[in-house]
Design a protein around this nucleic acid. Structure first.
Lengths: 251, 251
DNA sequence: TTCTCAATTTCGTGG
DNA sequence: CCACGAAGTTGAGAA
C-alpha cells in the first residue's frame, strides 16, 4: 500500500498490480470518460477506483449505491502518463467499450492479494414460495398436484404446471412482490398458448397482492388470484424442518 | 488511514468515521450475513467494505462486477466487538433489512474525506435514436410528423406520437437493442388503447433488429418494423452539428 | 451465441 | 407512498 504516491509511482503500481492479478484499490482525484453502448462524462472529483483480480472495474463516488462507471470481468488495461496525468484505460470487446480514468492526483493506492474462496448462498423469496408450494400445493388450492416446474411453453417458462381435482390443467405463476399488469399478461400468454393446444386451462397468479390495474385485467381475462405471502411460506417450510437457517434470521 | 489495525482500533475508526460522515474503505477477512427481502450467507474471506458518506454500503469480493452485498444510502450503522470479532451492522427500514459484517481481521482501514461535486452526464442510445428521429422523422417514414413525445396512453408511455401523410396516427416505439416479444406487446398495448378511442392507428417498432418470436407476433398483430441502428442515428445527429462530443468517441 | 426471465435489481418520473 | 418503465442494467440457465 502506498500513501500519496506521485503519478510515476502510481503508474508502476498499477502496471505491476494488474499484471500480477492483484486487486487494486486506488483513491484519487480523477475524471472519467466512457464510450460503448452509451457514452458518459464525469469531471474531476475524488473517487475510489477498484480493479479486481479478474479484470473487473468498479468506480465509486463518495455517495450513492451504484458505481458511477464500471467494466466487467475480463477487461483489459493500459496505463500511461500523458500531459502530467496518469491515465488508466479499461477495454472490453463485444460489445466494444472503453473507460478512461484520468488521475490528477492519487490519495492512496493498494495492490492487494485477497483470498476469498467462500461460496455465496442466496435464498430468494420466489425460491421460498415455490418450494413451499411444491411441499404443500394446498396453500394455493386443495387437491392441486404439481406436474412440472419451469415448463417451457412457447414464448416463455411457466413456474408450475399442475392438475386440479377435475384433472384440468392449472398454470401457477409466482410473484414475490405485489403483482402488476405485466405479471397478469405473462400468465395470460401461457394460458392462451396451452389453451390453443385444445385443453381446458386455468391460470392462477400467486402473490402477496395485486395492483388495481392487474386486478381488472385478471378478472377480464378470467384468470385467478391467490394471496400468498413469503412469510407464510417460510412458516410452512419451517414446519417441515427444511430451512432452520432462514428462521434464525426472522425476527 | 490505518494499516493492520487491531480490532479495537478498527472499531474506533469505524465509529468516528461514520459519525463524521467520512467515506470508509476497509479491507479485511470477514463473513457477511444479510436478511431482508431475501437472505444470504457468505463465510469468511477477504473483501473490501465501503461505507459511503451518505450511508450507502457496498461490499466487494476480489472478483466479479457486482457487490456481493450492499445497503442503500441512508442506512444506519452499529459497530461493536463481540467474541473477539469486530461486527459492523447496517440497517435500513422499509423494507426492513440488515447486513451483519463480522471481521476476523482488518488489513487496512481508511476513513476519507472525499470531495466530488462534478455532475455525471450519461448519453444513452435510446436518447440518441429519439433525438435523431425528431430531427429527421423520414428515417422511419417519409412525411411523418411528430405530434408529441413521451405521451401518456392508458397504461404506459408512448415514445413518439406521429401523423402520417394520410393524417393517420402512428405510434413509434424505439428499442436500442434487438427487440423481443415484450417490445411488440408493449407497442401492441398502446395501439390497442388508442384504437379503442376510435382512431385509425398504426404502430411502428424501430430497432436495429427483431427476434424471430417478435417478428411473428408483430406480423400477426399487423404492426410494422423499421430497421434503424444507433450508428445511423449518430451520423444523422452529427450531420446537423449537434453532438460533436459523441463523434469524438466513435472509432 | 441467442433468448428468456429473475434481481435483496436500482433508479427515475409521475400521480 | 404506489405504479410503471429504463438501465451501458447484470446474471443465470437453456436451446
Amino acid at each position: 500500500m502506498i500513501e500519496k504516491p506521485n503519478l510515476e509511482e502510481s503508474l508502476e503500481a498499477f502496471k505491476l498490480g494488474i499484471s500480477n492479478r492483484r486487486t487494486i484499490i486506488a483513491v484519487g482525484e480523477c475524471r472519467i470518460d466512457y464510450f460503448g453502448r452509451g457514452h458518459s462524462e464525469l469531471d474531476y472529483g475524488d473517487r475510489a477506483v477498484v480493479i479486481k483480480s479478474d479484470g473487473a472495474l468498479v468506480i465509486h463516488r463518495p455517495f450513492g449505491l451504484e458505481p458511477v462507471n464500471w467494466q466487467p470481468p475480463g477487461s483489459m488495461y493500459r496505463a500511461y502518463i500523458k500531459s502530467g496525468s496518469l491515465i488508466v484505460e479499461a477495454y472490453r470487446r463485444s460489445p466494444e467499450e472503453k473507460i478512461i480514468v484520468t488521475f490528477k492526483r492519487v490519495l492512496f493506492l493498494a495492490p492487494l492479494g485477497l483470498r476469498d474462496d467462500a461460496s455465496f448462498r442466496l435464498y430468494t423469496s420466489e425460491e421460498i414460495m415455490k418450494k413451499a408450494f411444491i411441499k404443500r400445493p394446498e396453500i394455493v388450492e386443495k387437491g392441486l398436484r404439481v406436474i412440472s416446474e419451469e415448463k417451457k411453453v412457447g414464448s416463455g417458462l411457466v413456474d408450475c404446471l399442475c392438475l386440479d381435482l377435475n384433472g384440468g390443467i392449472v398454470i401457477v405463476e409466482f410473484k414475490k412482490n405485489r403483482a402488476g399488469v405485466d405479471a397478469v399478461e405473462q400468465l395470460s400468454n401461457y394460458v392462451r398458448e396451452l389453451r390453443s393446444s385444445g385443453s381446458e386451462v386455468r391460470g392462477v397468479l400467486v402473490a402477496p397482492s395485486l395492483t388495481k390495474e392487474a386486478y381488472g385485467k385478471l378478472n377480464s381475462l378470467k384468470l385467478e388470484f391467490k394471496r400468498l405471502s413469503v412469510k407464510k411460506c417460510i412458516e410452512i417450510l419451517e414446519s417441515t424442518g427444511e430451512t432452520s437457517k432462514i428462521s434464525d434470521f426472522i425476527s
